[in-house]
Design a protein around this nucleic acid. Structure first.
Lengths: 210, 210
DNA sequence: TTATGTGAACTAATTCACAGCG
DNA sequence: CGCTGTGAATTAGTTCACATAA
């Protein structure tokens, strides 16, 4: 089982990896041991050649006529993504969007564990959401430092996003999953992944009207 | 003001359009009348040449030294995206994620109006979320037909997603914004835009560990 | 000088063609 | 045959170089 070398895996391939993973999880539940690129492609609506090329980046050897060993493939993809260990994260902003993320059960399979949520609003603080405690934002820095949290999730209104991002950086956070729609000003050492629903809506609109 | 011809606008450009739009909205509030690609690029952290190339697809003529006329540019982008008219939509699944979408105030500026939400759960039905009524799913087909709703948003648990999608198609829906993580089996005439948070998480993970 | 606009060059990603293996 | 794996061909997207206009 080759340890995947993430260098040079194309961004589109990385984005497809989670898709493959969830389909492989289903196949595993069905008792499958070997899976071919053809089958994955059919089930996901992709082209077989693309799946095959993507699989090549995992360095898992397939066997003609049989396909790829399912367990090994899953492990290789997880390892490529850094999802073999669980990363603890703090979420800030326990409003509707934050609650939606807290309620999503699939993160554990995707290497993410949201340890605690934080908010400023006294009506929200100390009322657990989906089993996750919601603490006052004033406790963020100290707790993040002590627990050596490296990952932060921002689900606050735009006007507070930069302040929260600054707080996260001060607190030792190295990666930020940002659901605000402002451009965050951050040191290069901090990795940011912006999530923007408008992109998807734009594509849908164009596909519909074009 | 040339009417944009959407044919051949690259997907990445379409995805950047909403970004430009929200930045242009800010500039407009600041009283700006003319904006150069250089300025947009600096404010969004993109390269000027890329912004310039993207702007070219709007067919708005820029003027050297001054840049592009802001209002015209905004209108051209909106028109490219089909965001000049508001599209009515029905949302199904008023759980945490559905509520988050219902609570998002930015859709009106993005050509989207979520008219009603639907659910099966009696605890949820008839309790408005953020001012949007939540009706029983049994009323979906009739209302969608009568109101000629063309856009559906799916925020139900995966196991119900296909059934809801089928219901939407039967009800005359032409485009589906799908937040489930299953592959929907639909006729080619229906446009689907899948939204998958795992993609972003995957990218973040790789950027962090790579 | 500052910025647009265009065609060419480059880079990235997808797809093809086919060899090889069970 | 069915399927992997590889290198080449194609297509898509980004970036460069430079002509041009105010």
């Amino acid at each position: 089982m080759a340890e995947a070398d993430m260098r040079g895996v194309p961004v589109p391939t990385v984005k497809r990896f989670p898709l493959y993973l969830s389909e492989l999880e289903k196949l595993k539940k069905e008792g499958t041991l070997w899976v071919s690129a053809t089958v994955i492609a059919r089930r996901l609506g992709l082209k077989a050649i693309q799946v095959r090329k993507d699989m090549a980046y995992t360095r898992v050897a397939g066997i003609p006529k049989r396909g790829f060993p399912l367990n090994e493939l899953m492990h290789a993809i997880r390892s490529s993504l850094g999802w073999t260990r669980i990363n603890d994260a703090f979420l800030v902003g326990a409003g509707a969007l934050g609650s939606a993320l807290l309620g999503y059960g699939g993160f554990h399979e995707r290497g993410l564990n949201i340890v605690s949520a934080f908010d400023r609003d006294p009506d929200i603080v100390n009322h657990p959401v989906n089993g996750t405690e919601v603490l006052h934002i004033d406790r963020f820095r100290d707790l993040a430092r002590r627990m050596k949290i490296k990952l932060g999730i921002i689900t606050v209104p735009d006007m507070y996003a930069q302040d929260i991002a600054d707080l996260m950086v001060e607190s030792g956070i190295r990666g930020i999953w940002d659901f605000s729609s402002v451009r965050l000003n951050l040191p290069d050492s901090v990795v940011v992944q912006k999530e923007d629903l408008s992109c998807g809506l734009a594509l849908l609109s164009v596909k519909l009207s074009g």
